[in-house]
Design a protein around this nucleic acid. Structure first.
Length: 270
DNA sequence: CTTTGGGGTATAT
DNA sequence: ATATACCCCAAAG
């Protein structure tokens, strides 16, 4: 009934993010009241902000639309962990703290995803897209499918993936057409060729693990190479200080992804 | 009262 | 179907 449902506009999302960056996550009321954003968020309540944040960034915690613990849907149960639970490595080691003492990451990126996890997912996305070179891009389902075949993936992965995809698209790293995503090629060549250090980045991988890695390894390398190129590219931009730390964060994220990839390549598989 | 974390549902694609 | 907006509830501050 009186809810035609109005999608959040980019302006609003931006305001929300800016607000979060400014006040921190959770200060919804504060953000909403901030004269700086009030003109855009006047129609939204703190709850709306919270929900919106949950829906957008969060897409990291629910299976389908959102975890439906309800309706257990017994269906024979019998948990036969042929495909064990996700539990992708334990990030955030049990020992509290240790690293990342600065809790200042409310930049609208993770918060719910550890940088590690996010990076990993990004890496997977790149891997998938690099491998399924779909001229027209791959659909979310295809990507999920692909990734599920190689990595153990949490049930809620789809959600996280779409969130990542969105961000990547927003950053213009991916192109989205309809429901498909494809890598965005940046013709960085041409014109001046400062070429940011194309030195060897890989410690030469000579592991016997190439058994099943083979292509994957190459693809991963390619994806990682992109990552590096983009990261360096980004650092130039960052050097000019576009304005946000978001870029920097992103860069860090990508760099991490690259490092992670390198690690995987090097060790084969943890 | 605000924050926070969920559940539930409606609606848009 | 899936993603997203929005509502509602209850606990903890």
């Amino acid at each position: 009934m009186g809810n035609p449902k109005q999608k959040w506009t980019a302006e609003e999302e931006e305001a929300l993010r800016a607000g979060i960056a400014k006040h921190g996550t959770g200060k919804w009321k504060n953000i909403q009241k901030d004269p700086e954003f009030n003109h855009l968020l006047h129609s939204r309540s703190n709850i709306d902000l919270k929900d919106k944040w949950r829906n957008m960034s969060v897409s990291a915690n629910g299976q389908g639309p959102r975890e439906k613990s309800r309706t257990p849907k017994p269906k024979c149960n019998t948990d036969s962990p042929a495909i064990p639970l996700p539990v992708p490595q334990a990030h955030v080691p049990s020992p509290p703290v240790a690293v990342d003492s600065d809790m200042q990451m409310d930049d609208g990126s993770r918060c719910l995803l550890d940088g590690k996890t996010a990076s990993k997912y990004n890496a997977m996305i790149y891997e998938a897209l690099s491998t399924l070179k779909d001229p027209n891009g791959s659909s979310t389902s295809a990507i999920v499918c692909f990734i599920e075949k190689r990595h153990e993936v949490p049930q809620n992965f789809r959600r996280q993936l779409t969130a990542r995809l969105r961000r990547l698209v927003a950053q213009e790293k991916l192109e989205k057409v309809q429901n498909c995503y494809r890598l965005r090629r940046e013709v960085l060549s041409g014109t001046k060729g400062p070429i940011p250090k194309p030195k060897e980045i890989w410690p030469r991988v000579s592991s016997p693990f190439n058994s099943y890695l083979g292509e994957t390894l190459e693809e991963a390398a390619i994806a990682a190479a992109y990552k590096v190129a983009e990261a360096e590219n980004k650092s130039f931009v960052a050097a000019e200080a576009v304005k946000e730390a978001e870029r920097v964060s992103k860069m860090a994220e990508e760099t991490e992804a690259f490092l992670q990839l390198a690690k995987e390549v090097h060790v084969g598989k943890w």
